[in-house]
Structure formats: structure tokens, C-alpha cells
Computed example of a mutant assay.
Amino acid sequence: MGLSSRTLWTLRRYWADRLGVPPNAFEKSGGTAGSAEEGGIQLFSHGDSLVVGVPDPLLDAAEDRSETVVSLDTEDEDAVHGWLTRFDGIEQAIGPTFYGYVDRETFTPVESDARVLTAADTAAYQAFQRSIPDSEWDQGGTQFTPGETVGLFVDGELVAVAGFDVWEGLLAHLAVVTHPNYRGHGYGQIVVSQATERAFADGLLPQYRTSDAWPWSVALAQDLGFHRFATAYFGVYQQ
């Protein structure tokens, strides 16, 4: 079972608006370019659609190249990175990136002892954060918010945390980190499951974004019922 038609409609409209393209851009074949001030060029591959959101100074060039982008194999990382970095001011390309979503119909929760952390867990959270390399924390860390952040304890030690930021009152953008000494046991999936349930309770649509270079992270989401909506690339714009 895939995402419901209502969920797909919502996502297509959300991303079309965010990337500055017509509402049907994710429902037609070919390339579409729009104006989006997101700090660079965003390229979303969804089915037969390739949608590109670019800063205004690059919009004309992107529209000129919207036909050539459809010939790209989005599984060919070098080809897409090369297409992005040919734009003036784009010096770095990131991707491919998994954008996954789950709705109540596809969600497969994991039963566990994970719970919402409280102010009494502050010291445990701080010790947990110190165990994570800064580079990893920047990729997946979540700010400690008593009453919101989800955590899992094993033998009295906090081993995984998850939480989410709310995007435009619609999406719950999930973040998860597992203690380096406790990886490979499914603990990350457990806390993401609990955070996903909290997102649903708040009336939000859960979003899981991760690099395709980390197949274990993609699998974590897919095992919970997240479906790939898009494969994305990002070209960092240096003005």
C-alpha cells in the first residue's frame, strides 16, 4: 500500500508552492523551474516529474535548462552534481536525498518503552549529547524540549532520542540520533516510531529526510511505513 491520494495531493501542492512552480508541476512529465529563495538550487525527482526551485538570479538559466534536466538520470549522482554546478555561483552539490512520508494508512508502529522526556531527564540528555560527534549531531540532532523530545533508556542509560520541527504548520520534520555504543539494535527506529505517533496526534504529516548514502537510515524509515515521495539534490548558492 502506498501513500493515500489525499497525502500525495497535499505533498505535491506543498512542494509546488515551496519551489515556486505551478500546482500541477508534480503531476506532469518533464521539467519545471520556479523561483524559490532556499539558499540554492533544489531539484526534486518525483515519478516522471523533475521540479527545480532556484534563486531569482538563476531563474532564467534554469528555465533555459529545464528541458535538459529531464534527460538526467537522477540515480547518477555525478551527472546531477555536474548539471547543478554548471550554474554560476553553485560550488557544491548535495544528494541524492530521500524525502519520505508516512500517513496513518501506511504507518507500522513499533511497540516499546520509549517515552517523552521530562525536565528530570536533562542530565541524561546532556550526557547523551556529549557522546555524539559534533558532525553527527549537526546531521540528526534534536533540541531537548521537555514534554516533546522522545527518548529510550536501556539499563538506565539514554540510548536514542528523536523529535521534530514543524514546517509551516503542516509537516513534522523528524530528527533522530542513536548513541554510538548502541547502534544496530533498532533503537533509532523505536524513537522515530514514537515521535511519528506524536506528530499524528498533533495533526501533522511526518517527514523523514536522509541521505541515500546511508541505506540503513532509509531502511529505518521504510520499515515504519515511510514512502519515498521524492529524490532530491541541492546546489549550494554562493552569491
Rank of each mutant, 00 (worst) to 15 (best):
F44L: 11
T108W: 00
E91L: 11
T118L: 07
P109M: 08
T74I: 11
D113K: 11
G95N: 03
G95K: 00
F98D: 00
E37F: 01
G89F: 07
A79E: 14
Y99N: 12
F98L: 03
D121L: 12
Y125N: 08
F128T: 13
L50Q: 00
G140L: 11
D78M: 06
A127S: 15
S45L: 06
F153Y: 14
G141E: 00
R104L: 07
V110I: 03
R104A: 07
G147Y: 02
P55T: 05
V54S: 08
Q126N: 15
G82Y: 02
D64G: 14
R130G: 05
E38Q: 15
A127R: 15
T85Y: 02
V52F: 05
E157G: 06
R65K: 14
T97S: 04
E148T: 02
G89H: 06
G82N: 11
G53R: 03
V150W: 09
D138N: 12
E136I: 09
P109A: 05
H46P: 07
G47M: 10
E136W: 02
E63Q: 12
E111L: 07
L72P: 09
I90D: 10
H46Q: 14
A119N: 05
D103N: 01
R65L: 13
G40Y: 03
T106M: 04
F98S: 03
A79I: 11
G82K: 09
H46M: 05
G40V: 09
I41L: 01
A33G: 03
S45N: 08
E105V: 05
T68N: 08
F128G: 11
E75R: 15
G156K: 13
A124K: 13
G47S: 07
A123W: 14
D73Y: 08
S135Q: 10
T85M: 13
A36T: 01
P57M: 11
T68E: 15
F144C: 02
V54M: 01
F87G: 10
A114N: 12
V80E: 01
I94H: 04
G89S: 11
G34R: 08
G156P: 14
T142E: 13
F87C: 09
A61P: 03
T106I: 04
G151N: 09
T106V: 09
D103G: 08
L117P: 02
D113R: 13
G156F: 10
P146Q: 06
W137H: 00
T118Q: 01
V116C: 12
Q143E: 14
D121R: 11
T97M: 08
Y99A: 04
S112E: 12
E67H: 08
R86Q: 14
